[in-house]
Design a protein around this nucleic acid. Sequence first.
DNA 1: CAGATTATTTTGAATACTCAAACTATTTTT
DNA 2: AAAAATAGTTTGAGTATTCAAAATAATCTG
Lengths: 225, 225
Amino acid sequence: MPSSTTENYLKAIYALAERDTNSPLVRLGELATELNLTPGTITTMIRSLSERDLVIYQPRVGVKLTQKGKREALLVLRRHRLIELFLVEVMKMDWSEVHEDAEALEHAVSDKFLAKMDEMMGYPTEDPHGDPIPVAGADMPATKNRVLSDVEPGAYQLSRVNDQDPEFLAWLSASDLRPGTRLVVSSHDPHSGVLMLQLQGAETEFPIGVEAAKKIRVKPVADNE
Amino acid sequence: MPSSTTENYLKAIYALAERDTNSPLVRLGELATELNLTPGTITTMIRSLSERDLVIYQPRVGVKLTQKGKREALLVLRRHRLIELFLVEVMKMDWSEVHEDAEALEHAVSDKFLAKMDEMMGYPTEDPHGDPIPVAGADMPATKNRVLSDVEPGAYQLSRVNDQDPEFLAWLSASDLRPGTRLVVSSHDPHSGVLMLQLQGAETEFPIGVEAAKKIRVKPVADNE
DNA sequence: CAGATTATTTTGAATACTCAAACTATTTTT
DNA sequence: AAAAATAGTTTGAGTATTCAAAATAATCTG
């Protein structure tokens, strides 16, 4: 029974938290940008979410989801991804036009309908983007993130960096390695301890050592995303 | 871009107007009952609909839809019925559980999605209840009402009475013939000019003359409705 | 027709969002 | 560390929708 507004806030908080796993809190400004609302609105709304025990709010610092909030967010995410897949697979709709529709339907779809879609598609575990579909009861969607140093050659997207060291982060940034960056792991030589990466757009390859690669998490990317 | 609240008001006005075609206006009280809202709320909202040229409002008397309002209402009805049919036919959902779902989805579904459903089901003209599905452009759904005197034997529902005569109406009412009443036409003898009706629940038959039957309109009823 | 009944409207208030603009805290920069 | 820039909060206000209860109009009934 959370309103669709509430659902959207929770979803946004969840998404932003995923995007940047380093900081434990999502700042309200990010949220304002994400949701296209004024900062004041966010503050007000977050206070209300906090009263309803959906988020933990540290004024001036940021928010994070409570257990309850996360459950809700995952529910919405599940609906969203299942619907997207449904629209593409069953309704034969196009990639491009599917997101908006799912955005609207995710707040209107009943459990029964959701269950039917799920069944109809054989209980899929990933949406059209390769993102995992959160499972009904389960707390967490199996995150598809993997440590860059452990990954087979292929296409990935940088999802997070497990290191706070400013120098390292600066180097990453200077190398265009930021969350969201697409990259292809073209080879991994275990003897030299060097992986060759090719960045989105760039044609030259680019070496990185295993030690550094251990700090970086990526997720596999479907070509169409 | 009407809100889903607005859409529900328009839909309700449309439905009530259909139900009782004798009076040209829907009284606000009926609306309050239909929508389960307090009378004051209705008054306020109707004034707002009126300002937006969706209804014509005669204070203390009633409302009717404007051309614009009717267009909106039919749009919603089209969505509702198409969705119901979709849920039953494609999603294999049960009759009983379909209405509520459609009620929610009718406000969230995009034109693209609607078009896909329509196409997928081969452009159906009737929903699971036998009610006509309003066509996108067309102003009016082909009403399925028929004059009782012209109808073949079968199950019907009384939809309207085209007569104002209080005596006649009183007789109807005394005979339990009211809009909404289910009845079965068991025979129609053109020579004697008498139709035999069996009322919902009752087991005895009951004669009515063609002249009277001409004033009564019914619509076919599916057994499951 | 006058009081009783019933239908509708008005009034005052609440909830859930949202904004603009003023204000305040925090962080950066010099 | 003070000035400047940035981020977050407060305040006052508005929209859409709703309710309860008082006021009013219309209708019914003896």
